[in-house]
Design a protein around this nucleic acid. Sequence first.
RNA 1: GCGGGCGUGAUGGAAUGGUAGACAUACCGGACUUAAAAUCCGGAGGCCUUAGCGCCGUGCGGGUUCAAGUCCCGCCGCCCGCACCA
Length: 850
Amino acid sequence: MERYNAKVVEPKWQKAWEDAQTFMAERDAREKYYVLEMFPYPSGRIHMGHVRNYTMGDVVARYKSARGFNVLHPMGWDAFGMPAENAAMEKKVHPGDWTYQNIADMRDQLKPMGLSIDWSREFATCDPEYYGQQQSMFIDMMEAGLVYRKNAVVNWDPVDMTVLANEQVIDGKGWRSGAPVERKELTQWFFRISDYSEELLTAIDDLKGWPEKVRLMQQNWIGRSQGLRFAFEMTGAPDGFGGLEVYTTRPDTLFGASFAAISCDHPLAKALEDNPEIAAFNAECRKTGTSEEDLEKAEKKGFDTGIVVTHPFHPDWQLPVYIANFILMGYGTGAIFGCPAHDQRDLDFARKYGLTVTPVVCPEDADADSFTIGDEAYVGPGRMINSRFLDGKTIEDAKTEVTKRIAEMKAGSAETQYRLRDWGVSRQRYWGCPIPVVHCPSCGVVPEKKENLPVVLPKDVSFDTPGNPLDRHPTWRNVACPKCGADALRETDTMDTFVDSSWYFARFTAPRAETPTVMEEAEYWMNVDQYIGGIEHAILHLLYSRFFARAMQKTGHLPEKAIEPFNALFTQGMVTHETYSTKGKDGRPVWRTPDEVRLEDGTARLIETGEAVDIGPVIKMSKSKKNVVDPEDIIDQYGADTARWFVMSDSPPERDVEWTASGAEAAWKHLQRVWRLTAEAVEKGDLAGDALEAEALLKATHKCIDEVTNGIEGFAFNKSVAALYQFTNTIAKSDAPNSDIKDALQTLAVLMQPMTPHLAEEVWAAMDGAGLVANAEWPTADPKLLVDDEIVLPIQINGKRRDEIRVAADASKDDIEALALKNLVVQKALDGGNPKKVIVVPGRIINVVV
RNA sequence: GCGGGCGUGAUGGAAUGGUAGACAUACCGGACUUAAAAUCCGGAGGCCUUAGCGCCGUGCGGGUUCAAGUCCCGCCGCCCGCACCA
């Protein structure tokens, strides 16, 4: 008997699918189903994370297709971004050439996986046909008032004279130059996503197909808070500054205030920079990175400006105004009052600068007179104390009272704030979608005429010097103003790559159209029924896409039904691997790839030299730790089905999966076994067998159908795989007539098709299945075959399992109880007495309480 | 720092509040073989001078319940995101 040879079989069926155009999607009368995996960045090689992601999507796509849906399952490339420019600098290649070569390489690696993708819809975001449509929408969004310009801060490398991404700032220094990074203000383009804060927040409730954790993360990110905005009277500030406006979510703690603090970027802080000490302090604050993490982790520092503000409810009570490094200019008013007793950051600050700490909220179970604050701020519920007219009130009542009085004094009012900031899309880089506007000396900022789109990136650029090549391009910048025709300059900023990925799912519905979308196509194919990708995109990408769907609807590019573009979302886990290292000369570990290492009895050695290798923790596959297994090697060695089967087995899809050589081997063995059973069944012809076994096999078949179906529907592919293992074992051991074995194998082929499509075709063909198994209908489990006549019920005594009894499946509660009480173990436990209680859960358990 | 998640045998994991460890890996034993590989069959959570109708067991400590891996409260550890990485 011949072994199953994936190298021959897999290309054969891939060609058969291609010839039959099996996965081409066109509108028809059937109900549609749109499956989408987050499209890849063309880094140059497919990695195991891709294999897992696209296999999951493929399982869903093939399954839904078998269930009779008209499936759309496309693929494209998120092709703009920094790595191409880095490659350009390091390898002297053009970012476009580098990117398109990578796409070609990755497509070649992806196709042998046998994914049921409609490749006719493929595009890359760096295709002018794509980004030109994006520019067109940008102009529409400008006209709809969704785009504006304002100053914003960037990381500036003073040596390389270039803007740095947060990622390129390491310990406050530029990653190439090593120079301390400065903050610099530039005029930049923004989308008004914050106009949609409330809507993006409330609509989360309707995202029923999304994981609860992602919905929570989005809610917290948008971060609605109810608070009070009010102005302190201020003394000692420079001319032009009236009061100090602050925003607080805890107006109830106003009598616990001991200072006010402003951000170093606050206008008042800037106005005080005539004082060299303040200028120096602000400069020091600005050395911290621009990320929220850097700001909040930095040690609390403040500078007492000498300015004071007056407590709104007491004219003699004055609070010092500090400039502090933990106040964010981007949230609220960039100024706060500090109540150290009930906010940890304020408490740390107060302890450091010797400010008073007065508790104003007392927990219900504490004594108001002796309640004090130690190293931890009290943020729980309680009653107001030390707060004059608020004393005895609850926090909620106190908030209402303070807000009311402040409003009566006309000093401020209640305000809802959101943490969500507008989306800055300007990037001072070449390899991105050019922002299609022109700066005219007389007309100002003018959108490019639509007939002049796409504004194509010039090809003749150099990356010898840092900075944006578009800025120094000799001719590309110089254009006539679209409005008046005078000499003008093109905008040289390009768009954030998140813009590219915020609407690609819509473009897949009409990828070659000369408008961004085509309404009737979008009407049919939208929404994405199942979106699959990494949890790392839980906030930004998904939120931006939700905003874009709204913006596209407003500008007439998407139908109303697509306001929430993703009906269901699944976030898959990572692919991990052990790490291997040997000791380098300087004592630091030298990372080794799994290829270089031989594993024996839990120890590892270098294949080449026999040197001992340390086995490190199991972490996400990464180039830097070299713990990567190249999918191409696995497909080469075992075939795509083995790789697909492995990444679907064992670990639940939402959790990390550890790639192990033995696991891959085991997957391969299983697929061989399925083929061996098939070949045996073919040889046996119409060999007779046991009729009772035939019935048992039929029951096993339907149990498997049920479990595989539930597994796929519930995104628990590992359980589907387990059911298929079990079913295969049953077939192997069955003495049923060979015709029944063949029926079982045919069903097995259909059930395995989503995961191992090539083997499934081969088995299907050997069992004389009609046409391609890729077009076969999904079987339905017969409920009558899923139940057994007799079941085994465990008997517990006082909640501990002691014995089991066999009862008819349809036995009544009373019958079961009577039977259980006759049980010897129960009799002994009762010791002649009566049970206190007997709990019978039919089909589940009996618990006798004695 | 803030937000989110995860934690079950040697390992990956299974378990509508109802027999903890399905299925698989690694391991051990057996069959076949001159031998090995492959294949097939079987074993197996831990503990024990008591091998049982025994005791313990789902990161740790409490609680609710006839019954807790599952629900509640408090910890510990690890992972992800934090707005210019994609």
